[in-house]
C-alpha cells in the first residue's frame, strides 16, 4: 500500500471521527445532512459485501468494519438519539436522495466490469458514493451559520477523494495491468463535485472569515 492511499484512508477515517466527535460531544448534528449519511451507509453495505467472503488483509477488514459501524451509528444518532435528533435541520435537508439511488443502480446494471451480483453492487456503490455528497452540499448552501466542524468534515471528505486520485495515478505507473476506468471516472466526478466547495473553503481560509456558500 502506497503512502497516498494510506493518507487517503486516514483522511477518510478522521473525517468520520470529526463528525462523530461533533455529534457525541456537543450533542448536535446541526448542518449535517441525514440524506447524505444514509447514502453513505448504503454505499458501504453494497461495496463491502465481500467482507466475509474475500479476505484481503487485516487492515482492509478492520477499516471496512469501522466504516460500516460508524456510518450506521451516525444515522442512528441523527434519527433516534433523544437529544441529537432535535438539532437535525429536517426542513432544510430536502434533497430527494432516492432520485440518486435508482439512476445509480440502473447505471451499474448497464456499465460494469462483470455481470454478477457482487460486482454490480460494488459498481453501484462507486456511482452512489460519487453523488452522495450532493444533499450535504445543498444543505451547506442553505445553512446560514455553519459551524467549523461541519466545514472541516466536508473538507476532509473532499481531501480523501483527491488523495485517492493521486493513489490511482501512482498505482497506474507502478503496477502492471492496473486499469480501472469505472472507478476512476466515478472518483473524478465525485472530486469535481467538491470543486466549488474547495474554492470557497480556501477563500474563507485566506481571508480568515467564516465559510458561507453563495446561494
Amino acid at each position: 500500500m502506497n503512502i497516498l492511499r494510506l493518507a487517503g484512508d486516514m483522511t477518510h477515517l478522521i473525517s468520520v471521527i470529526v463528525l462523530l466527535l461533533k455529534i457525541h460531544s456537543i450533542k448536535s448534528c446541526a448542518g449535517i445532512s441525514l440524506k447524505t449519511q444514509e447514502l453513505y451507509a448504503l454505499v458501504f453495505v453494497s461495496r463491502y459485501l465481500n467482507i466475509f467472503t474475500d479476505f484481503i488483509s487485516l487492515y482492509n477488514t478492520i477499516m471496512k468494519l469501522i466504516f460500516l459501524g460508524t456510518s450506521f451509528s451516525i444515522v442512528w444518532y441523527m434519527r433516534y438519539h433523544k437529544i441529537v435528533r432535535r438539532s437535525y435541520d429536517k426542513d432544510q435537508d430536502t434533497f430527494r436522495h432516492y432520485f440518486l439511488v435508482l439512476p445509480c443502480l440502473i447505471l451499474a446494471l448497464l456499465i460494469n466490469e462483470r455481470f454478477t451480483f457482487k460486482e454490480i453492487m460494488w459498481t453501484f456503490s462507486l456511482y452512489l458514493e460519487a453523488v452522495a455528497i450532493l444533499p450535504q452540499l445543498v444543505l451547506l448552501q442553505r445553512t446560514k451559520n455553519t459551524d467549523n466542524l461541519t466545514v472541516q468534515y466536508i473538507f476532509l471528505l473532499g481531501a480523501y477523494r483527491a488523495l485517492y486520485i493521486l493513489n490511482w495515478i501512482y498505482r497506474y505507473f507502478t503496477e502492471p495491468d492496473y486499469l480501472h476506468w469505472i472507478t476512476w471516472i466515478s472518483g473524478l466526478v465525485q472530486t469535481i463535485l467538491y470543486g466549488d466547495f474547495f474554492y470557497y473553503y480556501f477563500l474563507s481560509w485566506k481571508n480568515n472569515v467564516k465559510l458561507q456558500l453563495p446561494a
Binding site: 500500500m1 492511499r5 484512508d9 477518510h12 465481500n50 474475500d54 484481503i56 488483509s57 482492509n60 477499516m63 471496512k64 466504516f67 466490469e113 462483470r114 460494488w122 485517492y164 493513489n167 498505482r171 503496477e175 495491468d177 492496473y178 480501472h180 472507478t183
Partner: peptide
C-alpha cells in the same frame, strides 16, 4: 484475465 487489484481499496 481482469485484475482485481482495485478491490483492496476501500
Amino acid at each position: 484475465i481482469q485484475s482485481d487489484s482495485i478491490k483492496d481499496e476501500l
